[in-house]
């Protein structure tokens, strides 16, 4: 075999078909670059999707377990109605614990908006009761009815009014991440198919000669599929390593900083990265195979 016959792939990986089709130079580098860039983007799309999933779950579970009772009553009725609410809560199934917020708690809640040194005693501030549900949860409708009967000034707030839009927003972000992954996969397939078409066009004469000496389509297709699959796999590996390194550089998740700092994978989520190179290789395999069989139709 002459030195010109060798593509830049180790001999052990060369099939018979690889040996007779010349190396495709520019298209090979294009495929590797495309696979690397797409894998890099896929890492971030995956990170976005997983992070928003975690966020939606956290918001949902944290808020779902916290219910508040707000008591608005004249000053002389406040103690009576608060006691009535406490009585009701003690006998309500699903209540794990509850706490009547004292003046210091309420001042702390209002301070960010109204500033320090509030004369709370002169303001008609409602009394708040914070309830923590147990795993079984509270029948909010039943509790609402009991409260209206025994403490008319008490209003049950299960936070669903503002919890739902937040959870929905996070879920949509997660969906966007998944859509981005699908689009990246499809774009990878399309770009590899284009590169394969270009390589097939550049090797028209080789393909023609191979057909004339009795090569079956599968023999010819194998050469292109094999090399595009291996190059995509190599490119995707590089892209994933770069993407993972970029994620590592991001600040770690911390409770106060929120969403952006929580983009880094957590625990077993890092294992998702191992899926990207093989998926890229499978996409390259399918895209090249379809492109090659289609291109071969024009040869007798």
């Amino acid at each position: 075999m002459s030195k010109f016959a060798r593509p830049a792939i180790p001999d052990a990986f060369l099939s018979r078909a690889d040996r007779v089709v010349p190396p495709s130079g520019f298209t090979a580098r294009l495929t590797q670059f495309t696979a690397a860039a797409m894998a890099f983007l896929a890492v971030f799309a995956l990170a976005l999707s997983l992070a928003t999933g975690r966020l939606a779950e956290r918001w949902s579970s944290e808020l779902a377990r916290a219910v508040t009772v707000r008591i608005s009553a004249p000053v002389d009725q406040m103690t009576i109605q608060t006691a009535a609410v406490e009585r009701v809560l003690r006998t309500t199934p699903g209540v794990s614990s509850f706490r009547v917020l004292d003046e210091a708690d309420e001042r702390a809640l209002l301070e960010p908006w109204l500033g320090p040194g509030l004369p709370l005693e002169s303001l008609p501030i409602p009394q708040l009761v914070e309830i923590v549900e147990d795993d079984a949860g509270i029948d909010t409708e039943g509790l609402r009815l009991r409260l209206s009967a025994e403490a008319p000034g008490a209003v049950l707030d299960d936070h669903s009014r503002w919890r739902q839009p937040l959870v929905e927003a996070a879920s949509r972000l997660r969906l966007l991440g998944l859509v981005a992954i699908v689009l990246i996969t499809m774009a990878t397939g399309a770009m590899i198919a284009l590169a394969a078409n270009s390589a097939l066009a550049a090797n028209r004469e080789v393909i023609r000669v191979l057909r004339l000496v009795g090569a079956r389509d599968t023999f010819i297709v194998r050469a292109f599929v094999r090399r595009f699959t291996l190059r995509s796999l190599g490119g995707a590996l590089a892209g994933v390593i770069l993407g993972a390194a970029a994620l590592m550089v991001l600040p770690g998740a911390d409770q106060g900083a929120g969403f952006l700092t929580g983009l880094r994978f957590q625990g077993a989520e890092w294992l998702w990265l191992f899926l990207i190179p093989p998926v890229t290789a499978i996409v390259a395999f399918v895209a090249t195979r379809i492109a090659a069989f289609r291109a071969l139709k024009e040869f007798t």
């Binding site: 075999m1 002459s2 016959a5 007779v20 004469e205 080789v206």
Partner: peptide
């Protein structure tokens, strides 16, 4: 012939 291959190939 395929010009990138030797005549034997």
């Amino acid at each position: 012939f395929l010009d990138h291959l030797s005549i034997s190939d």
